[in-house]
Computed example of a mutant assay.
Amino acid sequence: MTTADRRLTELRDILALLPGEDLVWSLYEFYGFGGDPEGLEGKALASPSGYVLTWPRLVEFARGIRQTVDCTLVAVERAEDLAPDSPERGVGEFVLVGHDSTVWELTGARFGPALEARFRAEFCRPS
């Protein structure tokens, strides 16, 4: 996927369209290029619940990324839903999986027709 200015679609582009301020976000996997001064890649893999981020911290992290190679990010309403034994684990309000800044899969309870239409209008343009 590319943006209107023909650059690769990055995590920051996706987050700009999501209503995520009221959710608990967990980064389960991230490998990419750009600013990661806190070593979030390692922190995400070190915990079975991923690395929990606030919305502002997630947006800040996303702004520093130049390219995403692999990314798995889950948003839930309650932090308890991230626990490995939670029946809600992996079901999230949003589940975002990215591959090489070209393929992004977004699913979840809050991803409905209106949001899908916004994404299609933003990222699915004829060449």
Rank of each mutant, 00 (worst) to 15 (best):
E80Q: 11
D85S: 11
G98D: 06
A62N: 05
P84L: 14
G92W: 09
P84R: 13
I65F: 01
E77H: 08
D85Y: 07
A79T: 13
I65E: 00
E88Y: 00
H99R: 13
E60V: 12
G64M: 08
R66C: 01
D81H: 10
A62R: 03
G98T: 02
R66I: 11
T72C: 14
H99T: 12
R66W: 05
E80W: 08
R66D: 12
R78K: 15
S101Q: 08
H99D: 10
E93T: 04
F94C: 06
G92A: 11
V74G: 08
I65G: 00
R63M: 07
L96C: 02
I65A: 00
R89C: 01
R66L: 14
F94A: 04
A75K: 08
V69Y: 13
A83R: 13
V76P: 05
W104S: 03
D85C: 04
E80H: 10
V91I: 13
G98I: 05
I65W: 02
W104V: 02
R63L: 07
R78Y: 10
E60T: 14
R78D: 14
E88I: 04
Q67E: 15
A79D: 12
F61P: 03
S86L: 02
G90Q: 09
A79Q: 14
V103N: 01
D85G: 07
V97E: 11
P84G: 09
D100N: 12
C71D: 07
H99A: 12
A79I: 14
A75V: 09
V59I: 14
V91K: 11
W104M: 04
T68D: 08
L73H: 01
D70W: 13
S86N: 04
G90H: 01
P84F: 12
A79E: 15
R63T: 02
T72L: 15
D100Q: 09
V97N: 03
R78L: 13
V76C: 08
T72S: 15
V69P: 00
R89L: 10
V69H: 14
C71I: 08
E60A: 15
T102I: 14
T68S: 10
V95P: 00
L73S: 03
D81P: 07
T102E: 15
A75D: 00
F61G: 07
T68K: 00
V97K: 10
T72W: 10
F94G: 06
A75R: 07
E60R: 15
I65T: 03
F61E: 02
L82T: 05
D70Q: 15
R66P: 07
T72A: 15
R89M: 03
G92Y: 02
A83F: 01
D100W: 09
E80T: 09
L82A: 06
A62V: 09
S101P: 04
V103A: 12
V95M: 12
C71Q: 04
E77W: 08
D100K: 00
R89N: 04
V97I: 13
R78W: 09
W104A: 02
L73M: 06
D81L: 06
R89P: 04
H99L: 11
D70F: 10
V74A: 04
L96I: 08
L58T: 04
E77L: 02
F94N: 01
A79G: 06
V95W: 10
V91N: 10
E80K: 12
L73G: 07
R89V: 06
G90F: 01
A79M: 12
V69A: 14
V95K: 11
L73N: 03
A79C: 05
H99K: 13
A62T: 07
V74D: 07
T68L: 08
